[in-house]
């Protein structure tokens, strides 16, 4: 640091104006960033409330003159996906039907696995966890075709059990890691005492470990629900034509090009698909952040 520069920092008036400029710059940056993040969502909402004529006539930033939910009802029950014109409501039901068993199974199994790996002396526990996690890092494309063959050999390809199995298989590693990290933090005396008292593996899990896992189960559930709900590729390939979830239906709805593209309906359908995870995010706040960062930081 040169003498002149350090002197500049010492002059109080100069320093004050620098601080003020920095302050201004900081808020300007945050304001611009806030705009960048909110504009796509605001535009989607405003477009979905317009009529088709209004969308064609006005600009994206123009607010709807007579906001209405006509596009939403069309997206829900009338919009054409390929040749069937029943909207994406069927996709919602399929998404829910896929979601419930997938998340319950993967969180349940991951909790048990994490408990076994962290609190019991399973030989090579670290290697097992590492092998699981490495598998979860490999892109689906590398495994997808053999998995299709395996699933059809077992007889579950293109069915509800098929897509649920695939979701569980790919969901387990990161969830197991989260449970492992959490259970490692529990006081070991607790388990030791229970073992001396003669309690077995499942009894300790049910009576001692599970009642303390409330928060971490919420974190894991949120992570799992968003992952399964937002999945596209796995559902497209494994779910079969009768079980296609909302994301897949949405992509084909927007891709259906019969007549003039109805942007307002497309945006309403997009919002309907995005709403469940978005609500989950808004309601769960801190848990959600913990979920997306937990796997990242300790992994």
């Amino acid at each position: 640091m040169t003498a002149a520069r350090s002197a500049r920092y010492r002059s109080p008036r100069h320093r004050q104006s620098i601080v003020r400029a920095q302050h201004f710059g900081l808020y300007l940056f945050l304001f611009t960033a806030a705009l960048f993040f909110s504009i796509p969502l605001l535009i989607m909402i405003s477009t979905s409330l317009k009529t088709a004529a209004e969308v064609r006539a006005g600009s994206v930033f123009a607010l709807p003159v007579e906001p209405g939910f006509a596009a939403w009802t069309r997206a829900w029950g009338e919009a054409c996906i390929g040749r069937t014109c029943e909207g994406i409501s069927a996709g919602l039901w399929n998404s829910v039907i896929i979601l419930i068993p997938s998340t319950v199974l993967s969180v349940g199994l991951a909790a048990l696995n994490g408990y076994a790996l962290s609190l019991w002396n399973v030989p090579r526990a670290g290697a097992i966890l590492a092998a699981l996690l490495l598998g979860a890092f490999i892109p689906y494309q590398v495994m997808i075709y053999p998995l299709v063959r395996m699933a059809s050999t077992v007889g579950i390809y293109g069915s509800l059990p098929g897509i649920v199995a695939v979701h569980v298989i790919f969901g387990i590693p990161v969830l197991t890691l989260i449970f492992c990290n959490f259970y490692k933090g529990l006081p070991p005396e607790l388990i030791k005492a229970a073992r001396v008292d003669g309690a077995g593996f499942f009894r300790i899990f049910r009576r001692i470990v599970l009642p303390m896992s409330g928060n971490i189960i919420i974190v894991a559930l949120i992570l799992s629900v968003t992952g399964v709900w937002n999945d596209y590729l796995l559902s497209l390939i494994f779910a079969g034509r009768d079980n296609l979830p909302m994301t897949v239906q949405l992509a084909s709805l927007v891709g259906t090009r019969i007549g003039v593209p109805e942007y307002n309906v497309n945006m309403a359908a997009t919002l309907i698909t995005a709403l469940p995870p978005l609500l989950l995010y808004l309601l769960s706040g801190k848990y959600f952040v913990r979920g997306v960062t937990a796997g990242a930081i300790k992994g």
Binding site: P40, I43, M44, V60, N230, L250, M267, L278
Partner: peptide, 26 residues
């Protein structure tokens, strides 16, 4: 919360939103 909400969305949703916004004709 505002900076993080897109992470809750599917890439399909993100893609469609930006496609609409960047579409040259509309």
């Amino acid at each position: 919360s505002l900076f993080l909400y897109p992470i809750a969305l599917s890439f399909i949703v993100t893609g469609l939103a930006w496609q609409w916004f960047l579409n040259p004709t509309v």
